[in-house]
Amino acid sequence: MDETTLIGRLGALRPPDAELARSRALERVPARVAAARLGGGHTRARLRLRLASVAAVVLATLVALSFLTAPGQAFTSWVGDRLGLGQPGGHPALQSLRGWAMRGTGGAGQPAFVLARGSGRRGVPYEFITYRVRPQPGKEWPANGARCFQLEFPRDRGLMDAGCGLPAASGGLLFRGIGGNSQPGSAYRYASGLVSADVAAVEVAINGHPIPVELKPIPASLIARFQIRRPFKFFIAFFGPGPGRLTVTARDAAGRRLAERTAALPPPMPLGSVARRR
């Protein structure tokens, strides 16, 4: 058979009862189309589901941005303040992050509470928090249920250990070291520690030049509530980068020097969010 004949036969091919099929289609298809379009509820439900998915992705992105960008972190801090997070006596703003950061330690899963809060250089918020170490069999201190402390920076998602000890009852100064954020544009350093309740002032100086210090007495109500052995105060001083010699002096109400510690300021830290050097 030649190809022209074959192609001719293909072109002439018709289904059987084609006219009947056509009339059935003319009767059924428009009605089914109308029904499908009226029943667009399915389509609308799918559309709503799709919109909800998009909204969830946008929300997740915003949440991620809130953790990663300074404006986002400022916003979440503001929201946290409105919700009462990070207030003295309340839970810390980084409660969820603590769960992750403390994994595998005696502090994992232990409730934490804010003892003091404030903001330092460039408005960097901080929280001084306490938690009780979970008793761990076979371990001595501090796994005996001791109360420990932590300095947290909600905006920078930083959790810095502040030890488990208290300063001496009188004239005590526990210097907890120097830390900081080395991110360009938001870099800062801090020096912090604990002093006894009889300390009226803490002075921090770098190469002899005094810098502002925040001294926060821990309210007696919180000391009692968290069964802390004795009252104390928390101090923190923020300063910029650069090497030098740091001096911390604790004075009584009469201005007498009760205790003094010195430390060499290391050169600017390598890139990173919050780090600490003793």
């Binding site: 018709r14 289904p15 084609a18 056509r22 003319l26 009605a31 189309v33």
Partner: peptide, 21 residues
């Protein structure tokens, strides 16, 4: 629905032939 019917009427034959073949 009339427009849908016209479209079906206009395009049924060739589409049906393709499917059948």
């Amino acid at each position: 629905a009339a427009a849908a019917e016209t479209l079906v009427d206009r395009h049924w034959d060739r589409a049906h032939r393709v499917a059948f073949a």
